[in-house]
Design a protein around this nucleic acid. Structure first.
Lengths: 214, 214
DNA sequence: GCGGCAGTCATACGTATGTTTGAATCATAC
DNA sequence: GTATGATTCAAACATACGTATGACTGCCGC
């Protein structure tokens, strides 16, 4: 009857992941976590020393396989992936890798530029950003580096917003979108993002047009 | 020499806005705020009763004119605005209305689905969502309600991500994008979002294609 | 059997937080 | 000038938090 008891350490990670995702990092106390995990309060400091490094551990446990999957999909798409393939490589792993608690967590990580998230960002995310930037450069050569940079982050923003708002969005519409097939949303998002990635360049600002008039 | 002294209440709002934007709501203590505002600790409870309603006050002071401006721009775009006009009406007010502290704040509001943010969401944001949904429906009639719903929130996500990550993004690139002309970013985003809004519909899922094969 | 040790536990410590209090100060009307 | 109401102030309150401690438990090698 009782499920496999799992290690204390894993139970803490699971509980923390769930509560961090639902309520945020600072808003979740170690006592909330240990209660959810049915574990003694001191266990978290025994296994993870400090709350901060528990946060890191929770994030890294999920972020690492997620990003590996992204890289794999991008590699599998060949020499010069299309924008659709780029968007899908970036977005689809969220569906495949996941259990339900993870999505809100990812949303929280991306939408928290505070120090504790930056720690993880730069080490874990920078290579992925670089790799996808190169792919976009190959797929849409007309883009300047600045344009690639922003479009990449617009894509990331669409994703994070969906994840972070997952539980709230149903309240903002009368549509029966909950519980929804996450795969369908990803298809929509791939479509949206792909079109955005290959959008025409912005018109030159008035200052430059002036030169042409003279 | 000394600037106009402003009321205590306003100084609290300004300080809270600045610190909430920089560090988040829960991470900012009332003592941080009163120190920044050079005001007695008790003043915040005197003027705002509780921290929670201070948060509401800070958000509403900015969100309300922001959304009014959005509505105005959408109205000014005529009967059936183009997707570019829709995107611009949604995004441009952030540049015009703003002082620098506000942008991070908006990012925090949108990326925090916790109760305290939901309180504001549903009352203040629902009419705007409805209005823009109608505009998208008129501009891209082929979209189903679900598709409109998601594309609207992809647009919101690109915006929030940019705002929330504003201070962090420069660290993720070697490009000299900081300090950057915010108007230029908005032009990029309008371009991206407009293309996404009028992207072709998603391919039918395999299940429906099967029917055509039989 | 028993020593050693990783893991668990109840409990406590120090501190930071939101909030309250009651006296002091200020402004304004009479 | 002084009474009155609004505002500011220093100080305290209760609570919740992250962390630390020291005793206890169960297990494995010998």
């Amino acid at each position: 009857m009782t499920a496999a008891p799992l290690g204390t350490k894993t139970r803490i990670l699971d509980a923390a992941e769930k509560l961090f995702g639902k309520n945020g990092f600072e808003e979740t106390s170690l006592r909330d976590i240990t209660a959810e995990a049915q574990v003694n309060l001191a266990a978290v400091n025994y296994h993870f020393q400090t709350k901060e490094s528990l946060i890191d551990a929770v994030i890294l446990r999920r972020l690492e396989p997620l990003n590996r999957k992204r890289m794999e999909m991008l590699d599998a798409a060949g020499e010069t992936p299309s924008v659709e393939q780029i968007a899908e490589a970036f977005l689809a792993p969220l569906i495949e890798v996941d259990i339900p608690n993870v999505a809100p967590l990812v949303g929280r990580v991306f939408s928290n530029p505070a120090q504790f998230a930056v720690r993880v960002f730069l080490k874990e995310l920078a290579p992925v950003v670089r790799r996808f930037d190169q792919a976009i450069a190959a797929a849409v050569p007309a883009l300047t580096p600045e344009e690639r940079f922003w479009r990449l982050h617009f894509m990331a923003g669409a994703m994070t917003h969906m994840l972070a708002m997952w539980d709230v969005l149903p309240m903002m519409t009368s549509l029966p979108i909950h519980p929804v097939d996450r795969g369908a949303v990803v298809r929509q998002m791939v479509q949206f993002v792909a079109a955005g990635l290959r959008a025409p360049l912005v018109a030159k600002p008035p200052a430059e047009l002036d030169k042409e008039r003279t």
